[in-house]
């Protein structure tokens, strides 16, 4: 019926193998998701390599951008965790950059006509990825928390000034609350990326359908077209914001590990 068909809103999340790889019985194939992880990471590396190639007293354009990013995350870590946060700075910075680039690259439209497996893809639109990042953070918090505070780390779960008989219940709730915070973070990042891409795809599909109808009807494609443009602009904002939110909440979480005994 239509001149050209828009892909369904869920198709963009499909994982498609490009090169089949197996490690024992585990499938570690290079997929479109892996491809865009590699492209994103590669872009970050190329950028920082170029930016730090010649560390100049008066920074060039690339070096300025790199320094702005550095100061931005460094300020965040310092303000949230304090001077002790210094050792977590590379982790938070890597996390921020990785998520930011992953979020952003998936928003670019694919070249028409290339195979589906090579279409732009957002690795952070998959819960397993955001969950893994959250789990990594939680592991760091638990390991460092016990290393730094010893058993004082448990103070984190014991709210003060409450009747003793309520304690076991509240400690249980606090433990679950502690464990569910990074999970909530993972769900939020995933859901934002997922919903954003679905909405974008729906708008784009609507535009394509109206344009495909031909004739005067094409004029009615203009409204959703501008809608799609507006949503795309919004998605870029959300992509950056969600990377920032993830970094902020990671810092808050790490702060618990550093200062658990002070509670």
């Amino acid at each position: 019926m239509y001149g050209f068909r828009a892909a369904g809103p869920m198709e963009q999340f499909e994982i498609l193998p490009i090169v089949d790889l197996h490690l024992g019985s585990i499938n570690i194939s290079l997929t479109n998701s892996a491809l865009w992880m590699l492209i994103g990471t590669g872009a970050i590396i190329v950028f920082f390599f170029a930016a730090t190639r010649r560390a100049a007293l008066i920074p060039g354009r690339l070096q300025s951008v790199a320094e702005v990013l550095y100061e931005f995350v460094a300020d965040l870590v310092r303000d949230t965790i304090g001077p002790e946060g210094r050792k977590f700075f590379p982790y938070v910075f890597t996390l921020f950059m990785w998520i930011l680039v992953s979020n952003l690259f998936g928003l670019f439209p694919s070249f028409p006509g290339i195979p589906h497996a090579l279409h732009t893809f957002t690795p952070t639109s998959h819960l397993i990825v955001t969950l893994a990042l959250a789990m990594l953070t939680i592991s760091i918090v638990i390991v460092y928390g016990f290393y730094k505070n010893g058993l004082g780390f448990f103070k984190l779960f014991a709210p003060s000034g409450l009747p003793l008989w309520l304690m076991p219940l509240l400690v249980l709730i606090e433990v679950i609350s502690f464990l569910s915070r990074p999970l909530s973070l993972a769900i939020r990042l995933f859901a934002n990326m997922f919903a954003g891409h679905v909405i974008l795809k729906l708008f784009a599909g609507f535009v394509v359908s109206l344009l495909g109808a031909g004739g005067a009807v094409m004029l009615f494609g203009i409204a959703p077209f501008f809608g799609a443009v507006a949503v795309t602009a919004l998605e870029f904002l959300v992509a950056a914001l969600q990377a920032y939110v993830f970094a902020v909440l990671t810092c808050i979480y790490l702060n618990d590990a550093v200062h658990a005994a002070d509670h």
């Binding site: 194939s29 590396i45 930016a51 590379p90 990785w98």
Partner: peptide, 22 residues
């Protein structure tokens, strides 16, 4: 597969960031 490539890319990026770029 996703976890594997996440670990590879994130780990490599972390290593480069902490040892060189930052």
């Amino acid at each position: 597969s996703q976890l594997f490539w996440l670990v590879i890319t994130f780990g490599f990026l972390y290593w480069l960031m902490s040892s060189r770029f930052l």
